[in-house]
Design a binder for these strands. Structure first.
Length: 429
RNA sequence: GCGUCGAUGGUAGAGUGGUCAAAUACGACACGCUGUAAACGUGUUGCCUUCGGGCUUCGGGGGUUCGAAUCCCUCUCGACGCA
Protein backbone atom coordinates (compact mmCIF):
# COMPACT_ATOMS: atom_id res chain seq x y z
CA UNK A 1 0.00 0.00 0.00
CA UNK A 2 1.26 3.44 -0.86
CA UNK A 3 -0.25 6.82 -0.02
CA UNK A 4 0.56 10.06 -1.77
CA UNK A 5 -0.81 13.50 -0.96
CA UNK A 6 -1.46 15.41 -4.17
CA UNK A 7 -2.69 18.68 -2.80
CA UNK A 8 -3.21 20.31 0.56
CA UNK A 9 -6.00 22.63 1.53
CA UNK A 10 -4.62 25.99 2.58
CA UNK A 11 -4.64 26.89 6.27
CA UNK A 12 -6.23 23.63 7.30
CA UNK A 13 -5.46 19.93 7.63
CA UNK A 14 -7.39 18.90 4.53
CA UNK A 15 -5.80 17.20 1.57
CA UNK A 16 -6.49 15.26 -1.60
CA UNK A 17 -4.42 12.24 -2.38
CA UNK A 18 -4.20 8.80 -3.83
CA UNK A 19 -4.03 5.51 -2.00
CA UNK A 20 -2.57 2.72 -4.06
CA UNK A 21 -3.39 -0.85 -3.20
CA UNK A 22 -2.74 -4.14 -4.95
CA UNK A 23 -6.38 -4.15 -6.03
CA UNK A 24 -6.47 -0.64 -7.42
CA UNK A 25 -6.17 3.01 -6.56
CA UNK A 26 -8.41 5.03 -4.28
CA UNK A 27 -8.70 8.74 -4.95
CA UNK A 28 -8.95 10.39 -1.56
CA UNK A 29 -10.95 11.72 0.11
CA UNK A 30 -13.19 8.76 -0.69
CA UNK A 31 -16.41 7.29 0.60
CA UNK A 32 -16.34 3.57 1.32
CA UNK A 33 -19.68 1.75 0.99
CA UNK A 34 -20.28 -0.84 3.68
CA UNK A 35 -20.86 -4.46 2.76
CA UNK A 36 -20.88 -6.01 6.20
CA UNK A 37 -21.47 -9.59 5.21
CA UNK A 38 -19.46 -9.43 1.97
CA UNK A 39 -22.39 -7.79 0.25
CA UNK A 40 -23.39 -4.18 -0.12
CA UNK A 41 -27.02 -4.85 0.70
CA UNK A 42 -29.38 -4.95 -2.27
CA UNK A 43 -26.60 -4.34 -4.81
CA UNK A 44 -24.39 -6.44 -7.03
CA UNK A 45 -20.67 -5.58 -7.07
CA UNK A 46 -21.12 -4.35 -10.64
CA UNK A 47 -23.76 -1.89 -9.49
CA UNK A 48 -21.50 -0.69 -6.67
CA UNK A 49 -18.69 -0.19 -9.15
CA UNK A 50 -20.91 1.55 -11.70
CA UNK A 51 -22.10 4.10 -9.19
CA UNK A 52 -18.52 5.17 -8.70
CA UNK A 53 -17.30 3.41 -5.56
CA UNK A 54 -13.63 2.48 -5.56
CA UNK A 55 -13.42 0.52 -2.32
CA UNK A 56 -15.78 -1.28 0.06
CA UNK A 57 -15.66 -2.38 3.69
CA UNK A 58 -16.74 -5.72 5.13
CA UNK A 59 -16.96 -6.88 8.73
CA UNK A 60 -14.73 -9.33 10.53
CA UNK A 61 -17.16 -10.35 13.24
CA UNK A 62 -20.06 -11.08 10.89
CA UNK A 63 -17.97 -13.05 8.40
CA UNK A 64 -16.24 -14.97 11.19
CA UNK A 65 -19.64 -16.16 12.44
CA UNK A 66 -20.99 -16.77 8.97
CA UNK A 67 -19.75 -18.31 6.73
CA UNK A 68 -16.42 -18.32 8.72
CA UNK A 69 -13.07 -16.88 7.76
CA UNK A 70 -11.77 -20.37 6.96
CA UNK A 71 -14.44 -20.76 4.33
CA UNK A 72 -13.66 -17.37 2.81
CA UNK A 73 -9.97 -18.36 2.74
CA UNK A 74 -10.87 -21.60 1.01
CA UNK A 75 -12.84 -19.63 -1.53
CA UNK A 76 -9.68 -17.73 -2.34
CA UNK A 77 -10.21 -14.66 -0.17
CA UNK A 78 -12.88 -12.00 -0.01
CA UNK A 79 -12.19 -10.48 -3.41
CA UNK A 80 -12.76 -13.71 -5.22
CA UNK A 81 -15.50 -14.95 -2.92
CA UNK A 82 -17.70 -11.90 -3.39
CA UNK A 83 -16.55 -10.97 -6.90
CA UNK A 84 -15.19 -7.54 -5.99
CA UNK A 85 -11.82 -7.00 -7.62
CA UNK A 86 -11.22 -3.52 -6.18
CA UNK A 87 -9.76 -2.67 -2.78
CA UNK A 88 -11.49 -4.08 0.31
CA UNK A 89 -11.25 -3.10 3.95
CA UNK A 90 -12.40 -5.13 6.93
CA UNK A 91 -13.48 -3.68 10.23
CA UNK A 92 -12.02 -5.51 13.20
CA UNK A 93 -15.16 -6.26 15.18
CA UNK A 94 -14.38 -3.43 17.60
CA UNK A 95 -17.59 -1.66 16.79
CA UNK A 96 -19.56 -4.78 17.75
CA UNK A 97 -18.04 -4.49 21.22
CA UNK A 98 -20.12 -1.34 21.38
CA UNK A 99 -23.21 -2.14 19.32
CA UNK A 100 -23.70 -5.60 20.86
CA UNK A 101 -22.38 -4.52 24.26
CA UNK A 102 -23.06 -1.25 26.00
CA UNK A 103 -25.41 -0.05 23.29
CA UNK A 104 -27.34 -3.31 23.05
CA UNK A 105 -31.07 -2.80 23.52
CA UNK A 106 -30.60 0.87 24.31
CA UNK A 107 -31.15 4.05 22.45
CA UNK A 108 -27.46 4.72 22.11
CA UNK A 109 -25.82 4.94 18.76
CA UNK A 110 -22.74 6.12 16.96
CA UNK A 111 -24.00 9.68 17.12
CA UNK A 112 -25.22 10.77 20.52
CA UNK A 113 -27.80 13.50 20.88
CA UNK A 114 -26.85 14.15 24.47
CA UNK A 115 -24.49 17.09 24.58
CA UNK A 116 -24.56 18.03 28.24
CA UNK A 117 -21.73 16.01 29.80
CA UNK A 118 -23.54 15.73 33.12
CA UNK A 119 -26.14 13.55 31.43
CA UNK A 120 -23.41 11.30 30.10
CA UNK A 121 -21.83 10.41 33.38
CA UNK A 122 -24.32 8.29 35.33
CA UNK A 123 -25.98 5.04 34.37
CA UNK A 124 -23.07 2.68 34.73
CA UNK A 125 -23.31 1.56 38.37
CA UNK A 126 -26.63 -0.25 38.05
CA UNK A 127 -25.89 -1.34 34.54
CA UNK A 128 -23.93 -4.51 35.16
CA UNK A 129 -26.82 -6.90 34.68
CA UNK A 130 -28.15 -5.26 31.56
CA UNK A 131 -28.55 -7.80 28.79
CA UNK A 132 -25.86 -7.58 26.17
CA UNK A 133 -24.26 -9.81 23.59
CA UNK A 134 -20.73 -8.59 24.19
CA UNK A 135 -18.73 -8.42 27.43
CA UNK A 136 -15.34 -6.77 27.64
CA UNK A 137 -12.53 -8.51 29.46
CA UNK A 138 -8.92 -7.41 29.86
CA UNK A 139 -7.68 -9.82 27.27
CA UNK A 140 -10.47 -9.61 24.73
CA UNK A 141 -14.22 -9.64 24.34
CA UNK A 142 -16.70 -12.47 24.72
CA UNK A 143 -19.52 -12.36 22.22
CA UNK A 144 -22.75 -14.26 22.26
CA UNK A 145 -23.59 -14.90 18.64
CA UNK A 146 -26.76 -13.13 17.55
CA UNK A 147 -27.23 -15.98 15.08
CA UNK A 148 -27.26 -19.04 17.31
CA UNK A 149 -26.33 -17.95 20.82
CA UNK A 150 -22.92 -19.63 20.76
CA UNK A 151 -20.15 -17.96 22.76
CA UNK A 152 -17.01 -16.66 21.05
CA UNK A 153 -13.98 -15.01 22.53
CA UNK A 154 -12.29 -12.46 20.30
CA UNK A 155 -8.85 -11.16 21.19
CA UNK A 156 -6.79 -8.69 19.20
CA UNK A 157 -4.76 -11.61 17.86
CA UNK A 158 -7.88 -13.51 16.89
CA UNK A 159 -9.33 -10.49 15.07
CA UNK A 160 -6.13 -10.04 13.08
CA UNK A 161 -5.97 -13.74 12.26
CA UNK A 162 -9.54 -13.67 10.99
CA UNK A 163 -8.80 -10.58 8.94
CA UNK A 164 -5.74 -12.20 7.40
CA UNK A 165 -7.87 -15.16 6.42
CA UNK A 166 -10.44 -12.86 4.88
CA UNK A 167 -7.67 -11.20 2.90
CA UNK A 168 -8.71 -7.54 2.69
CA UNK A 169 -6.31 -4.87 1.47
CA UNK A 170 -6.74 -2.73 4.56
CA UNK A 171 -7.53 -4.19 7.96
CA UNK A 172 -8.12 -2.56 11.33
CA UNK A 173 -6.74 -3.10 14.82
CA UNK A 174 -9.14 -4.52 17.38
CA UNK A 175 -10.42 -1.67 19.56
CA UNK A 176 -13.07 -0.96 22.15
CA UNK A 177 -15.63 1.52 20.93
CA UNK A 178 -17.26 2.77 24.12
CA UNK A 179 -20.64 4.22 24.93
CA UNK A 180 -20.79 8.00 25.39
CA UNK A 181 -22.60 7.36 28.67
CA UNK A 182 -19.53 5.87 30.32
CA UNK A 183 -17.86 7.92 33.00
CA UNK A 184 -14.39 9.35 32.58
CA UNK A 185 -12.78 6.68 34.69
CA UNK A 186 -14.16 3.95 32.47
CA UNK A 187 -13.18 5.88 29.36
CA UNK A 188 -9.60 6.03 30.61
CA UNK A 189 -9.55 2.33 31.36
CA UNK A 190 -11.05 1.52 27.97
CA UNK A 191 -8.54 3.71 26.22
CA UNK A 192 -5.65 1.96 27.97
CA UNK A 193 -7.13 -1.32 26.85
CA UNK A 194 -7.54 -0.13 23.26
CA UNK A 195 -3.90 0.97 23.27
CA UNK A 196 -2.66 -2.39 24.55
CA UNK A 197 -4.85 -4.13 22.01
CA UNK A 198 -3.40 -1.90 19.28
CA UNK A 199 0.11 -3.07 20.14
CA UNK A 200 -1.00 -6.66 20.17
CA UNK A 201 -2.86 -6.24 16.87
CA UNK A 202 0.26 -4.78 15.31
CA UNK A 203 2.49 -7.56 16.61
CA UNK A 204 0.16 -10.25 15.38
CA UNK A 205 -0.14 -8.56 12.02
CA UNK A 206 3.64 -8.38 11.66
CA UNK A 207 4.00 -11.99 12.72
CA UNK A 208 1.38 -13.21 10.24
CA UNK A 209 2.71 -11.04 7.43
CA UNK A 210 6.21 -12.45 7.91
CA UNK A 211 4.79 -15.96 8.03
CA UNK A 212 2.86 -15.39 4.85
CA UNK A 213 5.98 -14.13 3.10
CA UNK A 214 7.91 -17.25 4.02
CA UNK A 215 4.97 -19.41 3.16
CA UNK A 216 4.62 -17.67 -0.16
CA UNK A 217 8.26 -18.25 -1.01
CA UNK A 218 7.71 -21.93 -0.47
CA UNK A 219 4.27 -22.06 -1.99
CA UNK A 220 5.57 -22.41 -5.52
CA UNK A 221 6.18 -26.06 -4.76
CA UNK A 222 4.44 -26.63 -1.43
CA UNK A 223 0.80 -26.03 -0.50
CA UNK A 224 0.34 -24.05 2.68
CA UNK A 225 -2.09 -24.13 5.57
CA UNK A 226 -5.53 -22.64 5.67
CA UNK A 227 -4.47 -19.41 7.33
CA UNK A 228 -3.10 -18.27 4.00
CA UNK A 229 -5.72 -17.90 1.30
CA UNK A 230 -4.59 -20.07 -1.55
CA UNK A 231 -5.53 -20.18 -5.14
CA UNK A 232 -6.51 -16.54 -5.23
CA UNK A 233 -4.92 -14.54 -7.92
CA UNK A 234 -5.15 -11.18 -9.54
CA UNK A 235 -4.55 -11.11 -13.26
CA UNK A 236 -2.91 -14.48 -13.20
CA UNK A 237 -0.40 -13.80 -10.45
CA UNK A 238 -0.52 -15.12 -6.95
CA UNK A 239 -2.25 -12.51 -4.85
CA UNK A 240 0.43 -12.39 -2.22
CA UNK A 241 3.28 -11.76 -4.60
CA UNK A 242 2.11 -8.23 -5.08
CA UNK A 243 0.04 -7.78 -2.03
CA UNK A 244 0.06 -7.93 1.70
CA UNK A 245 -2.59 -6.29 3.79
CA UNK A 246 -2.09 -2.91 5.46
CA UNK A 247 -3.03 -2.43 9.10
CA UNK A 248 -4.70 0.71 10.44
CA UNK A 249 -4.59 1.50 14.16
CA UNK A 250 -7.64 3.08 15.76
CA UNK A 251 -7.69 6.26 17.84
CA UNK A 252 -10.34 6.36 20.55
CA UNK A 253 -10.88 8.67 23.54
CA UNK A 254 -14.55 9.51 23.36
CA UNK A 255 -15.45 13.17 23.60
CA UNK A 256 -12.65 14.13 25.92
CA UNK A 257 -9.98 16.34 24.39
CA UNK A 258 -7.18 15.09 26.60
CA UNK A 259 -8.00 11.46 25.98
CA UNK A 260 -8.32 12.00 22.25
CA UNK A 261 -4.95 13.69 22.07
CA UNK A 262 -3.38 11.10 24.29
CA UNK A 263 -4.75 8.39 22.04
CA UNK A 264 -3.57 10.12 18.87
CA UNK A 265 -0.08 10.43 20.38
CA UNK A 266 0.05 6.81 21.34
CA UNK A 267 -1.55 5.22 18.28
CA UNK A 268 0.21 7.66 15.95
CA UNK A 269 3.50 6.62 17.51
CA UNK A 270 3.03 2.99 16.51
CA UNK A 271 4.06 1.76 13.10
CA UNK A 272 0.67 1.41 11.49
CA UNK A 273 0.11 1.88 7.77
CA UNK A 274 -2.72 4.29 8.45
CA UNK A 275 -5.12 5.34 11.16
CA UNK A 276 -8.78 4.95 11.94
CA UNK A 277 -10.65 7.43 14.10
CA UNK A 278 -13.35 5.66 16.06
CA UNK A 279 -15.85 6.31 18.78
CA UNK A 280 -19.27 7.70 19.40
CA UNK A 281 -19.58 11.45 18.91
CA UNK A 282 -21.99 14.22 19.55
CA UNK A 283 -22.56 15.63 16.11
CA UNK A 284 -21.35 19.13 16.89
CA UNK A 285 -18.14 17.84 18.52
CA UNK A 286 -17.10 15.67 15.65
CA UNK A 287 -15.18 18.22 13.65
CA UNK A 288 -13.18 19.40 16.63
CA UNK A 289 -12.47 15.84 17.77
CA UNK A 290 -11.16 15.02 14.31
CA UNK A 291 -9.02 18.13 14.38
CA UNK A 292 -7.47 17.33 17.77
CA UNK A 293 -6.52 13.92 16.46
CA UNK A 294 -5.29 14.80 12.99
CA UNK A 295 -3.06 17.59 14.23
CA UNK A 296 -1.13 14.84 15.98
CA UNK A 297 -1.30 11.83 13.65
CA UNK A 298 1.56 11.47 11.11
CA UNK A 299 0.66 13.62 8.16
CA UNK A 300 1.92 11.24 5.51
CA UNK A 301 -0.34 8.35 6.41
CA UNK A 302 -4.01 7.96 5.48
CA UNK A 303 -6.76 8.54 8.02
CA UNK A 304 -10.12 6.86 8.04
CA UNK A 305 -13.07 8.24 10.00
CA UNK A 306 -14.99 5.16 11.02
CA UNK A 307 -18.73 5.05 10.61
CA UNK A 308 -19.26 8.59 9.37
CA UNK A 309 -21.21 10.02 7.71
CA UNK A 310 -24.08 11.97 6.56
CA UNK A 311 -23.49 14.64 3.88
CA UNK A 312 -23.24 17.44 6.42
CA UNK A 313 -20.55 15.54 8.37
CA UNK A 314 -18.20 15.10 5.46
CA UNK A 315 -17.00 18.65 4.97
CA UNK A 316 -15.73 19.34 8.46
CA UNK A 317 -13.95 16.02 8.59
CA UNK A 318 -12.27 16.44 5.20
CA UNK A 319 -11.29 20.00 6.05
CA UNK A 320 -9.58 18.58 9.11
CA UNK A 321 -7.61 15.92 7.35
CA UNK A 322 -9.77 12.83 6.94
CA UNK A 323 -9.09 10.78 3.81
CA UNK A 324 -11.58 7.96 4.05
CA UNK A 325 -15.10 7.44 5.34
CA UNK A 326 -17.30 4.42 5.63
CA UNK A 327 -20.91 4.57 6.74
CA UNK A 328 -24.00 2.39 6.59
CA UNK A 329 -26.28 5.42 6.45
CA UNK A 330 -26.68 5.74 2.66
CA UNK A 331 -27.67 2.11 2.21
CA UNK A 332 -29.63 1.69 5.41
CA UNK A 333 -31.74 4.79 5.08
CA UNK A 334 -32.23 3.93 1.41
CA UNK A 335 -33.80 0.62 2.35
CA UNK A 336 -35.96 2.49 4.83
CA UNK A 337 -37.22 4.95 2.24
CA UNK A 338 -35.06 8.05 2.84
CA UNK A 339 -33.30 9.49 -0.19
CA UNK A 340 -30.64 12.16 -0.40
CA UNK A 341 -31.16 15.25 -2.49
CA UNK A 342 -29.14 18.44 -2.63
CA UNK A 343 -31.97 20.06 -0.69
CA UNK A 344 -31.90 17.52 2.12
CA UNK A 345 -33.34 14.07 2.64
CA UNK A 346 -36.80 13.13 1.47
CA UNK A 347 -38.98 10.27 2.68
CA UNK A 348 -40.15 8.70 -0.56
CA UNK A 349 -43.04 6.99 1.28
CA UNK A 350 -44.67 10.37 1.94
CA UNK A 351 -48.10 10.75 0.32
CA UNK A 352 -46.99 13.69 -1.79
CA UNK A 353 -44.65 11.51 -3.89
CA UNK A 354 -47.29 8.99 -4.96
CA UNK A 355 -48.04 10.93 -8.11
CA UNK A 356 -44.75 12.76 -8.47
CA UNK A 357 -43.42 11.78 -11.89
CA UNK A 358 -40.20 13.74 -11.59
CA UNK A 359 -36.76 12.35 -10.78
CA UNK A 360 -35.66 11.79 -7.21
CA UNK A 361 -33.25 14.63 -7.87
CA UNK A 362 -33.02 16.97 -10.83
CA UNK A 363 -29.85 16.53 -12.86
CA UNK A 364 -28.80 13.45 -10.90
CA UNK A 365 -26.98 11.07 -13.20
CA UNK A 366 -27.37 7.90 -11.21
CA UNK A 367 -29.01 4.89 -12.83
CA UNK A 368 -32.16 5.27 -10.75
CA UNK A 369 -32.70 8.92 -11.62
CA UNK A 370 -31.93 8.34 -15.28
CA UNK A 371 -34.57 5.62 -15.59
CA UNK A 372 -37.27 5.98 -12.94
CA UNK A 373 -39.63 8.48 -11.31
CA UNK A 374 -40.32 9.27 -7.68
CA UNK A 375 -43.81 7.86 -8.15
CA UNK A 376 -42.43 4.53 -9.33
CA UNK A 377 -39.91 4.25 -6.52
CA UNK A 378 -42.64 5.24 -4.05
CA UNK A 379 -44.85 2.53 -5.49
CA UNK A 380 -42.09 -0.06 -5.09
CA UNK A 381 -41.70 0.90 -1.43
CA UNK A 382 -45.43 0.80 -0.72
CA UNK A 383 -45.62 -2.55 -2.46
CA UNK A 384 -42.58 -3.83 -0.52
CA UNK A 385 -40.84 -4.75 -3.74
CA UNK A 386 -37.18 -5.70 -3.44
CA UNK A 387 -36.31 -3.44 -6.33
CA UNK A 388 -37.14 -0.47 -4.08
CA UNK A 389 -34.09 -1.20 -1.93
CA UNK A 390 -31.88 -1.58 -4.98
CA UNK A 391 -32.94 1.61 -6.74
CA UNK A 392 -32.84 3.64 -3.53
CA UNK A 393 -29.43 2.28 -2.54
CA UNK A 394 -28.01 3.08 -5.98
CA UNK A 395 -29.21 6.65 -5.69
CA UNK A 396 -28.00 7.25 -2.14
CA UNK A 397 -24.60 5.69 -2.65
CA UNK A 398 -24.15 7.57 -5.91
CA UNK A 399 -25.06 10.76 -4.07
CA UNK A 400 -22.54 10.27 -1.27
CA UNK A 401 -19.71 8.75 -3.28
CA UNK A 402 -19.95 11.53 -5.82
CA UNK A 403 -20.35 14.22 -3.21
CA UNK A 404 -16.99 13.18 -1.78
CA UNK A 405 -15.53 13.11 -5.29
CA UNK A 406 -16.77 16.64 -5.85
CA UNK A 407 -15.24 17.71 -2.57
CA UNK A 408 -11.97 16.14 -3.69
CA UNK A 409 -12.15 18.01 -6.96
CA UNK A 410 -12.89 21.25 -5.12
CA UNK A 411 -9.67 20.79 -3.14
CA UNK A 412 -7.73 20.27 -6.38
CA UNK A 413 -9.46 23.30 -7.90
CA UNK A 414 -8.90 25.55 -4.88
CA UNK A 415 -12.60 26.16 -4.26
CA UNK A 416 -13.33 23.82 -1.36
CA UNK A 417 -14.74 26.50 0.91
CA UNK A 418 -17.05 27.91 -1.74
CA UNK A 419 -18.28 24.44 -2.60
CA UNK A 420 -18.84 23.66 1.07
CA UNK A 421 -20.81 26.81 1.70
CA UNK A 422 -22.94 26.37 -1.40
CA UNK A 423 -23.73 22.74 -0.65
CA UNK A 424 -24.58 23.21 3.01
CA UNK A 425 -26.72 26.25 2.27
CA UNK A 426 -28.99 24.10 0.14
CA UNK A 427 -28.75 20.86 2.10
CA UNK A 428 -29.40 22.19 5.59
CA UNK A 429 -32.79 23.83 5.55
C1' G B 1 -92.39 -18.63 2.12
C1' C B 2 -90.21 -21.12 6.60
C1' G B 3 -85.84 -21.89 9.52
C1' U B 4 -80.77 -21.10 11.14
C1' C B 5 -76.60 -18.12 11.46
C1' G B 6 -74.52 -13.46 10.68
C1' A B 7 -73.84 -7.70 10.07
C1' U B 8 -68.09 -4.26 14.83
C1' G B 9 -63.62 1.53 13.20
C1' G B 10 -60.03 2.15 5.90
C1' U B 11 -59.71 -3.68 5.64
C1' A B 12 -59.59 -8.43 8.18
C1' G B 13 -61.07 -9.75 12.90
C1' A B 14 -61.57 -10.09 18.72
C1' G B 15 -65.20 -8.65 22.15
C1' U B 16 -71.22 -11.27 23.85
C1' G B 17 -74.53 -6.50 30.20
C1' G B 18 -70.40 -2.16 33.32
C1' U B 19 -63.07 -2.82 33.63
C1' C B 20 -65.09 -0.47 25.61
C1' A B 21 -63.59 4.93 21.95
C1' A B 22 -63.66 -0.99 21.49
C1' A B 23 -57.82 -6.28 21.52
C1' U B 24 -54.73 -7.74 17.46
C1' A B 25 -53.02 -7.60 12.54
C1' C B 26 -52.78 -5.13 8.06
C1' G B 27 -53.42 -0.47 5.70
C1' A B 28 -52.88 4.88 6.07
C1' C B 29 -50.09 9.14 7.99
C1' A B 30 -45.60 11.04 10.13
C1' C B 31 -40.85 10.60 12.20
C1' G B 32 -36.17 8.22 13.31
C1' C B 33 -31.84 5.50 11.49
C1' U B 34 -23.97 7.40 11.18
C1' G B 35 -17.26 1.34 11.62
C1' U B 36 -25.36 -2.83 10.00
C1' A B 37 -28.65 -8.24 15.22
C1' A B 38 -31.87 -2.92 10.59
C1' A B 39 -36.06 -4.64 3.39
C1' C B 40 -35.84 -2.03 10.52
C1' G B 41 -37.84 0.76 14.60
C1' U B 42 -41.13 4.48 17.07
C1' G B 43 -45.53 7.45 17.30
C1' U B 44 -50.52 8.76 15.56
C1' U B 45 -54.80 6.66 13.29
C1' G B 46 -63.91 8.64 15.56
C1' C B 47 -64.66 14.21 16.53
C1' C B 48 -63.38 18.43 19.77
C1' U B 49 -59.86 19.94 23.59
C1' U B 50 -57.46 25.33 27.77
C1' C B 51 -54.63 17.91 27.37
C1' G B 52 -57.99 17.85 33.09
C1' G B 53 -61.44 16.10 29.94
C1' G B 54 -65.85 16.63 26.79
C1' C B 55 -68.92 14.63 22.78
C1' U B 56 -70.98 11.05 19.07
C1' U B 57 -70.01 5.55 17.67
C1' C B 58 -70.32 -1.39 16.82
C1' G B 59 -76.34 -2.33 9.81
C1' G B 60 -81.45 1.13 10.61
C1' G B 61 -85.43 2.01 14.10
C1' G B 62 -87.68 0.93 18.75
C1' G B 63 -87.39 -1.32 23.67
C1' U B 64 -85.46 -3.69 28.56
C1' U B 65 -81.82 -1.88 32.25
C1' C B 66 -78.91 2.47 36.96
C1' G B 67 -75.88 0.91 32.61
C1' A B 68 -76.23 -2.13 25.85
C1' A B 69 -71.33 -3.50 20.64
C1' U B 70 -73.27 -7.28 24.04
C1' C B 71 -80.39 -8.85 25.99
C1' C B 72 -85.58 -8.33 23.46
C1' C B 73 -88.77 -6.67 19.13
C1' U B 74 -88.80 -5.04 14.23
C1' C B 75 -86.89 -3.61 9.51
C1' U B 76 -82.82 -3.89 5.82
C1' C B 77 -78.98 -6.71 3.80
C1' G B 78 -75.96 -11.37 3.40
C1' A B 79 -74.76 -16.80 3.87
C1' C B 80 -76.59 -21.62 4.40
C1' G B 81 -80.63 -25.26 4.86
C1' C B 82 -85.80 -26.78 3.89
C1' A B 83 -89.90 -26.04 0.62
Amino acid sequence: MYFKIEKKLENSLGRAGILKTAHGDIQTPAFVPVGTKASVKALTPEQVLDLGAEVILANTYHLYLQPSDELVAKAGGLHKFMNWSGPIMTDSGGFQVFSLGAAYGKEISKITKITNPSFLIPERFDDNDAPRLAKVGQDGVSFKSHLDGSIHYITPEKSIQIQHNLGADIIFAFDECISPTEDLKYQEEALERTHRWAERSLMEHQRLSAEEKVSLAGSLSTPTGVALPLGSSVKGTSRNETFSSALFGIVQGGRDENLRKKSAEFIGGLDFDGYGIGGSFAKEDMTSAVKWVNEILPEKKPRHLLGIGEPEDLFGAIENGVDLFDCVAPTRIARNGSLYTKNGKINIMNAKYREDFSRIEDNCECYTCMKYTRAYVAHLFHGKEMLAATLASIHNLFFIVNLVKKIRQSILDDNFFEFKEEFLKNYIK
